[in-house]
Amino acid sequence: MQNKKKLPDMHGFRQRLKRDLKSNWILWAMFLPVVIYYAVFNYAPMYGILLAFKKYEIKKGILGSPWVGLKYFERFFSGYNSWNLIRNTLGLSLYSFLAGFPLAIIFALLLHYLTLGKLKKVVQMVSYAPYFISTVVICNMLVLFMTPDTGIFNILLAKLGLESVSFLSMPEYFKSIYVWSGVWQSMGWSAIIYLSALAGVDPGLHESAIIDGASKLKRILYIDLPSIRSTIVMLMIMTLGGIMNVGFEKVYLLQNDLNFSVSDVISTYTYRVGLQQADFGYSTAIGLFNTLINLVFLIGSNALSRKATGESLW
């Protein structure tokens, strides 16, 4: 039964494909470089994930190298620093999320209700600017500003009569430095999307609320926030889906021997083990673990939000 049904289908598919190749050959030809690009730089590396289960020997290649099963995963989870890495990674991104996500919404609301048009324009323009500054420059600035004694932060502390602090060598400050410099850099930019959502809120709702005597604060709570809910949820899913993607560059650049206990995250570890110590299999295994956790978070938060609010990415 099944075969009988499938055969004509396959036949029809081939016919249609042939016709499509003939009539739309230009589209196929245009798209070919894209297929090659993704095949080489995305799909070929996916095949390279096999390394996570193999003892890589250059001469034998990926396929020829002997299998080692889940050895690398066992090594990672039994290692003394694995939980520290996971904790640091999750800690940094959750802290970033909890600080940055609501602040972007609040900032957008404040801008939206700002009565001075000129100030609004200036604040908007200036607040987007830090987003375009490179991570290297941001870290350079942080290091310069936080230099003991002569950095401007410490100079300002001294003017207040406080002791100089070597911020970047103190583990307890690392997370906050990372997170709040990130907020400084991206708050304005993240607010744009909410601003455009706020501009699309039905003005009729506001008009009738005003007639009923609702204050601006009340209108924010009962009209604006519910109206932009779907935007908020969508961005939340996307952020949570990348929860394990702590910005490698910034952590790597701010890392030093003294703050290492809190600044070593999965991505810097994969880099160190993989490229500096050339332990390819082990590094690939940890990278794969990271990607899988991300997928779980993405699928999980998507499902959760579909259940809770009816909004979802797919």
């Binding site: 995305n42 996916m46 390279g48 994930i49 590094s283 690939t284």
Partner: peptide
């Protein structure tokens, strides 16, 4: 089909070392 082919790359990839080996 090709849309999905591309979309997958947004969420899943080989990671640092496999990509490095390809390059």
């Amino acid at each position: 089909f090709w849309l999905k082919f591309c979309l997958i790359t947004m969420y899943f990839g080989g990671g640092l070392i496999p990509t490095y080996l390809v390059v």
